[in-house]
Design a protein around this nucleic acid. Structure first.
Lengths: 218, 218
DNA sequence: CGGACTTTGTGATACAATTCACAACATCTA
DNA sequence: TAGATGTTGTGAATTGTATCACAAAGTCCG
């Protein structure tokens, strides 16, 4: 139990997966799970799970495995999900509306407290109890409520400038749906949600299969 | 110019980012770009771009850089975007509808040709010229049209079973929005779009900042 | 033409992540 | 109690990825 070096980001990114799987186990009424059992559920090796967890402490019991409730509580605490983080959304188009309505948000650890759009026709409309506010109010709301997380669902052309505004107002973490790479100061955390890029990386393998198939049946 | 070993998946995942950035450069009317220039735009080192491209050939010119049009054409060809891949969508809730309406899909390399839902009240409705079909038709459509790509936007509880159906019918690549890890046979390519998991990995860093702040101002 | 710049492509090197393998411990059964 | 079985946590080994650094080649300019 040394824990000299801090956990790498790849490990941090896997923790939410472990947490989610543990919640499903909870729902199923399962009380104990081994690293192997958890691993087969999420396509991760048992050794990797144990190694990942070892960055944060010792949570298992030899011969038994992990207590589902306790391990979940530990991981949620590590991930900062014990508190509730406030979140704003910029861009209330089709995608933005789907995000607002997605019950997954707001459920665990994060709460959407403001939604913004620069289209005057949209401002004032209410979605899921949240009134759409104009972009002019964005910085003020972030600052006054101490919001740290922002979701960006504006068109690519507007993304960078709105992100600049957000960061200046105090945002520290950004979930970006716009198809652009954002430039942010050091220390600001950005994650990209990018279905097109994901699709285009899969077509590579489809094309490979086609090629192989064609060369086999001439 | 050896190219003995095939490109690792990390490289394949970066190619669409390069392609996208090159398209923006095209729009700006820029004809040549160096690895360094491209790198600063997408937060990747110049060496990494050159190394990545070297898996596929030599596309640059010393002293000049890369011809934007030509490099883009090369990358799109590598990614299999010269042809058009057919795609189906399962699950036409809020998220599914946002996906159907998102102009990003259908634009480059992929075309949505069928949308499916198991809710009888939705079946028959038309979204963007596509009628919602019942899940019973899913396998037939995939098989008859030779569809290789599927987007999964159904609830977590239905995801695995619909994926099983899809794979049995001939789907080879899956873009999964459901918050579950899918079990698929070897050779099936799966990518996850998972905003909650992304958010929960960011709250870790926010919590770290809070801790540090608190320990500094006692 | 020649020298100062620029940039690519790539072996070599350094760094990072994953997997292996096993001691230490826990439980169960008889 | 003892032997069989199962599981964790973790150094060590392995595998994978990113960076470095430089020869080779092109451009620019007076």
């Amino acid at each position: 139990m040394e824990r000299l070096d801090l956990p790498p980001d790849v490990v941090i990114r896997r923790l939410p997966l472990y947490a989610r799987s543990l919640r499903y186990l909870q729902d199923e009424g399962i009380q104990f799970i081994s690293s192997h059992g958890l691993g087969t559920r999420i396509n991760v090796t048992a050794a990797q799970i144990r190694k990942d967890l070892s960055y944060f402490g010792e949570f298992g019991k030899q011969g038994i495995g992990y207590n589902v409730n306790k391990l979940l509580a530990h991981i949620e605490h590590i991930l900062g999900l014990s508190k509730e983080w406030l979140m704003v959304l910029a861009g209330v188009g089709h995608l933005g509306q789907a995000i607002v309505r997605y019950e997954g948000f707001g459920s665990r650890g994060v709460r959407l407290v403001g939604i913004f759009d620069n289209d005057p026709a949209k401002v004032g409309q209410v979605i899921e109890d949240l009134p759409i506010l104009p972009d002019e109010d964005l910085a003020r709301v972030i600052h006054e409520l101490g919001v740290k997380i922002a979701v960006v669902a504006v068109p690519a052309s507007h993304a960078q400038s709105i992100v600049d505004t957000m960061v200046a107002a105090g945002i520290r973490a950004i979930l970006n749906y716009a198809p652009v790479v954002l430039r942010v100061p050091d220390g600001i955390c950005v994650r990209y949600i990018d279905p097109i890029t994901a699709l285009h990386s899969m077509t590579y393998y489809l094309a490979q299969e086609e090629d192989k198939r064609r060369s086999q049946t001439p």
